[in-house]
Computed example of a mutant assay.
Amino acid sequence: MSHTFNSTNNRPWLKESHQKRSNRSVEIGKQSIDLLLKKGESVTYTNVGDISREIDPEGKGIHPNTIRTNEQLYEYYKQHSLTYKQKENSKNSKTPLNNDIDIDFRKVKPNRNVENAQRKYMKLSKKELVQRLILAEQYIAENNTKWVANHFEMFK
């Protein structure tokens, strides 16, 4: 037996109630964001939810997830949130992968600080790590071939 989700389209008597709640969320959310900006605090989902409880006449406020699900409020949030902009900028600032750039593995020192190397690798994306691993394997394979060829030449 499968259950189907009944949307508000099948219940026209709920449309008015949903619209009221949505409008209330937008109003309280915008007021909360404006108040945070006035206070000089960061506009985050949590901060908006906390402030909304303080300014809501009913004392309920809005849930942080309401910001994500309400399109009007989410757009307003994106315009004023620095953390949202930082997140977007960090996505765009990642260096693109270049297959042309070979890493010079000869410069890797055996006595390097492993913690620093680990910290550096933790900042890389999964694709960048895979690319780096493939390049390292190719470098090792090429050097093994050269080493075997040199040893073979020495025995002739």
Rank of each mutant, 00 (worst) to 15 (best):
S90G: 01
D56M: 05
N143E: 09
T46E: 12
K91T: 05
I62F: 02
L73P: 05
N47Q: 10
L82T: 13
T46G: 09
N9W: 09
Y121T: 15
K109Y: 04
P57H: 02
T69K: 12
G59V: 00
T66Q: 15
N89T: 09
E137P: 04
Q19S: 12
T66S: 13
N89Q: 13
F105T: 11
A141E: 12
Y45V: 07
I101G: 03
I55F: 00
W147M: 12
R106G: 11
N143M: 04
T46F: 03
S17V: 13
D34L: 10
Q131D: 14
V108G: 03
D56H: 07
E71V: 02
L14N: 11
R11K: 15
K91Y: 08
N6A: 07
T4S: 12
E128W: 06
M1G: 13
N98K: 06
F105L: 08
Q138W: 01
I51H: 03
D100S: 07
E41C: 12
Y139L: 06
S125Q: 03
M122Q: 15
I67R: 01
K94T: 15
T83D: 15
N99Q: 15
K87A: 05
D104Q: 07
K85G: 01
W13T: 07
P96A: 10
L82W: 01
N89I: 06
T44C: 11
Y77P: 04
S93Q: 11
V130L: 14
T69C: 06
Y121K: 05
Q72I: 03
K78W: 00
Y45C: 08
T145V: 05
P64K: 02
K20L: 14
G40H: 00
T8C: 15
N9Q: 13
K15R: 14
Y121N: 12
S81R: 01
I55K: 03
H63K: 07
S52R: 02
E128Q: 15
Y121R: 08
R119I: 10
G40V: 02
E27A: 05
N6S: 09
N99L: 14
E128R: 05
Y76M: 02
T46H: 06
T145H: 09
Y76R: 02
F105C: 10
R68F: 02
R11L: 15
M122G: 09
K146M: 00
S81L: 04
E75T: 04
K15D: 09
E142T: 10
N111M: 06
E27P: 03
Q19I: 07
E153T: 06
E58N: 08
R68N: 06
L35I: 10
Q19G: 06
Q86T: 08
N92V: 01
Y45G: 13
M1F: 03
G40M: 01
L36C: 11
G29E: 04
N116C: 08
S125K: 03
R24V: 00
V26R: 04
N10W: 09
T95I: 14
